[in-house]
Design a protein around this nucleic acid. Sequence first.
DNA 1: GGACAGTACATGCACATGCATTCAATGCAA
DNA 2: TTGCATTGAATGCATGTGCATGTACTGTCC
Lengths: 144, 144
Amino acid sequence: MAELDSPAEAGLVAQWRELLARHAAAACMLDRELGERFGLGMSEFEVLERLVEDCGGGGGQAVRVSGLAHTVHLSQSALSRLIARLEKAGLVTRAMCESDRRGVLLTLTEAGRERYEQARPLHRQVLELTLGEGLGPACGSTSG
Amino acid sequence: MAELDSPAEAGLVAQWRELLARHAAAACMLDRELGERFGLGMSEFEVLERLVEDCGGGGGQAVRVSGLAHTVHLSQSALSRLIARLEKAGLVTRAMCESDRRGVLLTLTEAGRERYEQARPLHRQVLELTLGEGLGPACGSTSG
DNA sequence: GGACAGTACATGCACATGCATTCAATGCAA
DNA sequence: TTGCATTGAATGCATGTGCATGTACTGTCC
């Protein structure tokens, strides 16, 4: 039996599996629910939320893409395409940064803010369901 | 300010972001390290591990694919293709189940067991790094 | 000014994933 | 036995992701 060499190792693996299960359950349900009802993926919502936070309540404040990359767990290329999707959907606007013309400034549109506000309750409900109580079966294993 | 309506909501979101960060850090490093050194993805290793556990120490005990789906957080189709990759790599063997010929029995090959045993220390090291201590920047945001 | 390294973002490409569908096999009912 | 719903797994397809690269721009050194 090679898998029970040390108790510390077993605990670490148990912790990892618990994390995997919770993440899978939450991520899958978020993707499905937000996608069905609001046309947003989990990461799309996450980016919108960061934009709302960083832009503050006042509209029009712009955010650099490079700043987002530090908070959203996506590669730079994935983030670039995600923003392209959001822009295509009319939820954000891309504009050239004047002070550093390599950079891109993101502005949340009114539609983007509304979409976020509409989706937020569902997002929180899913988190309550999947993080609050004992975890259920994850997404992938229930499909088929 | 719409994002601080209730303290419970804020706590839930904080918990979710913590989970996202830990998962991203661990999953990314696992994929990268296991991929570079052993040609295994995170999920491939996970499946091998379940096979080792379910087959027990003795070789040759077979495991149904349908049973794996409940423990690995993948869709049925993804699991099917993952198993195909493992079989192509010579790490598992697919055989028809005699009692229910719809089912597929998986057998860990000697190479599969060896690969798992070789990869396990690295897997545990990554878990220690990413789960044990305070989380660092996640994978995606550090690439580029 | 010109050359060159570094940064910010976009894009080509390969690949893993999920959904819907398909195929094979089982269980049940008539 | 035939007919039908169900289950286990494989496959077509669209999509999201990361890596490597390309493009545009900045800053530095000469």
